[in-house]
Write a protein that binds this DNA or RNA. Sequence first.
DNA 1: CAGTGGTCTAGACCACGTG
DNA 2: ACGTGGTCTAGACCACTGC
Lengths: 265, 265
Amino acid sequence: MLRSFMYPYMSDQPTVERNTDTERVGGSAAFSPLYQQIKALLLQGLDRGEWKPGEAIPSELELAARFQVSQGTVRKAIDELAAENLLLRRQGKGTFVATHHEAKVRFRFLRLTPDDAEPSASGSRILDCRRLRAPADIAAALDLRSGDTVLNLRRVLSFNESPTILDDIWLPGASFKGLTAELLASNRSPLYALFESEYGVSMVRADEKIKAVAANEAQAELLEVSVGHPLLQVERVSFTYGDRPMELRRGAYLTERFHYRNSLN
Amino acid sequence: MLRSFMYPYMSDQPTVERNTDTERVGGSAAFSPLYQQIKALLLQGLDRGEWKPGEAIPSELELAARFQVSQGTVRKAIDELAAENLLLRRQGKGTFVATHHEAKVRFRFLRLTPDDAEPSASGSRILDCRRLRAPADIAAALDLRSGDTVLNLRRVLSFNESPTILDDIWLPGASFKGLTAELLASNRSPLYALFESEYGVSMVRADEKIKAVAANEAQAELLEVSVGHPLLQVERVSFTYGDRPMELRRGAYLTERFHYRNSLN
DNA sequence: CAGTGGTCTAGACCACGTG
DNA sequence: ACGTGGTCTAGACCACTGC
């Protein structure tokens, strides 16, 4: 059943179809409220790049007209996307696509924090940047076929001149063509901001698994500590729109003057 | 300005006053929407124990009548409390006060997870339970005067018979009168469930600071590892309603077969 | 002043759980 | 059959932003 018969003026935009199914194969409920369908359409738009990070999406009234629903329904869809930090509402101005070119977003993904005071001078040194065929574990984490090309990146992050973070980063090769060590060296913004601007890949969410481990020889040398020194080991999988994994990152953090902060809600 | 003049039937419940202030001393905006005022009232009710954990709060229509606002306004207040996990909506049944007597809530606060498979047989052994005058750092964390009585609790948690977690817990003495080692030993449920049922203290949120450290002698012996073994050190401050700190917990986790899981949103 | 998101209301209907 | 929360609508008015 199309909704448009209730509205005299049809747009040429795709019209949302009411879905009131309660029963489906398997018997599991599959009922999708209108605002969830709108949310899915907005997500598609974001994924397709119809609206780029930092840009405004159309106003609520405009979206309501486009999708042939009430403003309240659009609002509820946007509310959820804003709660998930995909969109950002600004009263009087509009609703904007979240971007990693912002301190706020950055701290959502950078949890290592100085014990005292505010962050300090930070620097990144690229150790390595090469393409290779994905080992089985990497392929599995990134939803690739083992043997697909992946990009492997290693770097050291320093604060106040002292090396603090070791990152070992794996990316699907197909999505990051042209990423080289030179390009990274000349890059000043956070890595995720670069991914977003240069490769159209927006990281939206991440899962982390954290352990305490003893530094091995390679880690000890790079972090300027002795072998066996306790390190925070953080394994992260980052996702874009639609929960598609786009990065596997293995980090080792020195936590003498820093800690990993977290909030349990 | 009272709202009640618009409604012929006044209840004897406190009536919400509209607050449309836009200017205040200092010029900073201090405008509070109606639904935020309702939310504050509900929070007070929770804090006072008007509705206990696990119980249902009154229906939306009933609250709307009590506070002399529309159902939609009550709904928005409840929406926020549900988003913060203080309330739990169940379609067809009602809205319930969150309780730690539930697996879901428990895993919000217990982040250490087995690397494989599902949790296993777990046990708690109380090492120590004593009252003393609060050291300065503890007092500061719990918003007490240094010298106020605090309760100090130490325990070992084991999974599959192997000691895995060391906890050093500090509680404000005034809120936990009668808590003894015997009582703890006979307790089978999670600690926060006990706090809730026996002392009316609901933990609602927590902040954690995580480091990797080397095991000292005491830790090494209790966890059955060698001195210097890497441990995950987790310092947690837990809060009740109104962001009042009610627990300081220092944990040391063995992470050979377990990891701390986290989601970045 | 016009346009945006934010609040608030009132009412209709739906889905769910329980008698 | 009834009461609960869930969805959807339409419309009024408020607060913030920028021209």
